[in-house]
Design a protein around this nucleic acid. Structure first.
Lengths: 201, 201, 201, 201
DNA sequence: CATGAATGAGTATTCATTCAT
DNA sequence: AATGAATGAATACTCATTCAT
């Protein structure tokens, strides 16, 4: 009974600090973000930051975890609306990639995190997405290809998801202007469909 | 005539500094590498480093360029040995990926560079590889599919190469133990073959 | 109420850092002064220096401003004692210059600052002095020459003050032993009096 | 006989190095000038520079000495043309100052040297000028004021010359826009005339 | 619990000068 | 005498983290 308010206050503080971290990274980039910037943004002292997080790394990791959860939730909500019976995989993949590229381009935080994927525990963001995609895809495959090898599916999804994400990222970041975005998106979704296609005997 | 020895010495120094840079990055990581470490490793003074390279960035870029050239050369040598008539694309891709993953696992330098792909001009390393792959693949496509749409091929190769590289990298770096390496390699090469397959009418 | 002690502490730190800057420049010269020397002299860490001043330049500028304020104050105090009715301008100027030369000779800091006048914002030091002199001189001119052309006075004071300061500085610094100090001072004050003398119709 | 060509070559080299120093300081400023820049500009190796001058300081000092000699020569040539009988001191001073300000503004080398007067042995430049002015002025005073106290004259010229030079310098460098250049020049020459004026009994 | 002042290790780069060739 | 490659001391500034209040 006595602990409740403290825990609530604590949860509020954590959330506030993560908001501040997100806003700061979005505005100043990962390299440009200092712990003091985050404290300022959160409107608390730097000491308080260290009361709730052991170090800067923990702050970023927590933020990524939260981003992963949110992204997974959004993905599941989107997935609900898709009518498996009328839309084919190509269409779904295409709009998903388009939406993904758009999201990265519009969300500086995600952009910055993914840009620095090797320096942050990016899997905290990607794993939930992968998981959500896996769950959402399962019924599709069960319906269309009744005996799709499920274990195989997992690896295929791993390949397909990572391929799509990082190819898209590299394209967005490095602005390889030789290739049209439309064509890239088409080729990527083509890659997805072809790769996921069960082997035809 | 008089300049020859100087040019040679200069080339030797450049090479020595790049070796030192490579060794230092391999041992201490990109972030842990300072210009003074490089000078120490090369056995020269820090001043000499700046006599040959304007700044740290130039050092890393030159190293990546050299790595790209070497990788391209190695790739072409490997490609020579492949007998297009007896080996199919699946087999080629499979051994190439296996070799690639092995290389990254064994070469901490490549590992570190690719790990920091967004902070270094990684294209200096990847472009020659892409180019080499493109050149090596051309006869294959000419042989098997006489009128493969070449422009389309470019985008497809972009997708295929980046997908393979970054998925492999992510796999190696993050040690996603849920998936077997063998299966990943198989799935990746499968993805390559399926994606590059011309559309069958 | 709560901010008071902090502001006090802050003011104390600023003052302490300026003291340290002054002492260090006085002892080691402007070129020989590093930010770490200043921190050492102040008995604080280098980080603290940068908590209160954005860079070295700001430190020097603040010091000059403080020096200007102090010099202006001292000048006004001296000026109070002068009895306009009994002392003439020649006498006032003479003692002022004597005092000035003495000050520079005894104060290595002022000496060093003025020696480097073109590399530091020396006007922060000289402007208050000029202003103080202008204010102090006004009643004198009002009394003796009721309708002295004020705008003209500004330029004349500019010439007179700069001439005096820099000629004295050059004399002190370069130790031109051909000329007696007494004679120089006399000639300078003579110059001042003659130059400020309103035109007689 | 055998030494002659060497001495000639030596003199040529010294002259060449001074030219290079002058050009480099004029173009890059005193702080921006390195010994290697000078060697490049002279088209010789840095080692050769140190064959002829012990250090950078000696290079600058020699250059200032040469500048002083040239300035003195130019001054004497100008002075020849002035007709003492028809021109009065006010006119001479005025045009001299105007010419001086113009020279400093147009000659980046002189500007840069004078701007850094406290860090270079500026007297090597100014002493010959003072001397030349002293010599040139002597007959003028002898003619107009037959029993002008000569010793006094020396000090007065010291004051007048330094006052003029440094006030003008400060004006040019710091661009004190509150004061019109015309007015400053007029006031300075007024100061000169009034100060040099023999005491009227 | 909160504060925020203080800490100090860490790093890229410059340039006058030397000396082996 | 000439070369120019090599030297290396020296310096301003950052920022994650601590701890006394």
């Amino acid at each position: 009974m006595r602990k409740a308010p403290k825990q609530k206050r604590s949860r509020e503080m954590v959330s506030r600090l993560l908001d501040a971290t997100a806003a700061t990274i979005a505005r100043r980039g990962l390299d440009g973000t200092t712990t003091n910037h985050i404290a300022d943004q959160a409107g608390v002292s730097i000491g308080s930051v260290y009361q709730y997080f052991p170090d800067k790394e923990a702050l970023v990791e927590s933020l990524l975890t939260r981003m992963g959860e949110q992204a997974g939730r959004r993905f599941r909500q989107q997935a609900k609306k898709v009518d498996i019976d009328t839309m084919n995989l190509q269409q779904v993949a295409l709009s998903a990639i388009q939406f993904g590229i758009y999201s990265i381009r519009r969300d500086p935080l995600t952009y910055e995190m993914i840009r620095n994927w090797s320096r942050v525990p990016i899997h905290k963001l990607l794993d939930p997405l992968e998981q959500a995609f896996l769950v959402a895809a399962q019924p599709y495959f069960l319906k269309h290809y009744s005996n799709y090898p499920v274990h195989n599916l997992e690896t295929k999804l791993y390949v397909v998801i990572n391929s799509t994400i990082f190819t898209a990222i590299r394209y967005v970041i490095q602005d390889d202007s030789m290739i049209e975005e439309k064509e890239l998106v088409a080729t990527l979704s083509d890659m997805i469909v072809r790769t996921l296609e069960p082997v035809v005997h």
